[in-house]
């Protein structure tokens, strides 16, 4: 497989800032995220719970919950700023150009609609298909995502399918209109390990077949190692490290990334040894530290880390590897 051309990004998010209204006033939860996704590229967005992964993606199609608002930044998709679009234009993008796969297949399908009808809905709405044509296409889609007996299953209700099957249906719905970008928000979290692997393989194959871009949100670095081209590590609403996947595993630089990698259990670990973890918890919105958000939990933190926020800077020898850490950047300079 040749490397896709990344020079012209399909999605270019710059300085995206999201705030939540609290009783003590607005609190920043996503702080100026920069993220690009090239055409045909697969990007993994990694970070622990509550670091703003899902909110960032939901904000792109403006589906944030009531009290959460975008305060600044741009999100240019295919030459247009998603955050400035009119509602009707946005509806064309949702489902038509950007497909979503959600976290929980148990609750993300309408329980009173047959899965076929749910699959046909975007086709009829976005592609102006006739009911019979949409049904034909729905059967194809079910076949595409590997559901056996799609002619029968199309009339099933969600509760009649297993979790893995439902997630396949969700993916089929996300893919229905051949989106240019598929955003998968922790699509395997609710599934057991063997099904997780099947779903990852499925998305890999679909991406190759359909040539779309994929953003895969997860907290499981190990799971996406073989799937994505590039990884963006999020911590407390900022990108702390962004690198091609091989580079990231070879040379994890940010202390947080290292912590994440160290907490993946390995078969070679001693049986009785404790699983390694990162001490402390991420800062609450509204109580963000003044300097680097990771500084309070960081073993390498220096006085400057508590005072200033580090910028995301490229490595000299690998410009696609960027990291936001004063200590790592100084070591880079010294090495150069």
């Amino acid at each position: 497989m040749t490397a896709p051309a990344y020079n012209k990004p399909l999605l270019d998010v710059r300085g995206l800032t999201i705030e939540i209204e609290t009783r003590r006033g607005p609190a920043v939860i996503v702080d100026g995220i920069n993220l690009t996704v090239g055409k045909g590229e697969t990007v993994g967005v990694v970070g622990e719970s509550g670091c703003g992964k899902s909110l960032t993606m939901l904000s792109l199609v403006r589906l944030l919950p009531n009290k959460i608002k975008v305060r600044g930044g741009t999100a240019v998709f295919d030459g247009r700023d998603l955050l400035q679009m009119s509602k009707s234009e946005l509806r064309q993008v949702r489902g038509g150009k950007i497909g979503f796969v959600f976290q929980d297949p148990m609750t993300s399908l309408n329980p009173v609609m047959r899965i076929g009808d749910q699959l046909c809905e975007p086709l009829i709405y976005h592609r102006d298909m006739k009911k019979a044509d949409a049904r034909k296409r729905a059967i194809e889609l079910l076949k595409l995502v590997g559901i056996p007996g799609p002619e029968q299953r199309i009339d099933a209700y969600p509760h009649e399918l297993s979790g893995g099957m439902r997630q396949r249906v969700m993916i089929a719905i996300g893919l229905a209109c051949d989106p240019e970008l598929l955003i998968a928000d922790e699509p395997t979290t609710a599934l057991d390990v063997t099904i997780q692997a099947q779903i990852v393989d499925l998305v890999k194959e679909l991406r190759r077949k359909l040539g779309m871009s994929v953003v895969w949100i997860t907290h499981d670095l190990a799971l996406i190692a073989g799937l994505v081209d590039r990884v963006a590590v999020l911590y407390a609403g900022t990108v702390v490290e962004d690198a091609p996947v091989g580079e990231l595993f070879k040379r994890p630089t940010h202390p947080y990334t290292r912590g994440l990698l160290a907490s993946i259990p390995k078969l070679s670990d001693e049986r009785a040894s404790r699983l390694s973890s990162i001490g402390g918890t991420p800062p609450e919105p509204g109580r963000r530290p003044k300097g680097c958000p990771f500084a309070p939990r960081c073993g390498l933190a220096e006085p400057i880390c508590h005072e200033h926020v580090p910028a995301l800077l490229s490595f000299a020898e690998e410009p696609r590897h960027r990291v936001a850490c004063f200590v790592a950047q100084r070591q880079m300079m010294e090495a150069a």
């Binding site: 946005l90 489902g95 976290q103 993300s108 975007p122 709405y125 719905i173």
Partner: peptide, 23 residues
């Protein structure tokens, strides 16, 4: 979640109310 999912599909409010919420 299925209502959010329906909105992420770009369906109109009327369609969402009639086919996802009221039923």
């Amino acid at each position: 979640p299925y209502v959010t999912a329906a909105r992420a599909l770009g369906l109109t409010n009327r369609l969402i109310i009639m086919r996802y919420i009221v039923p």
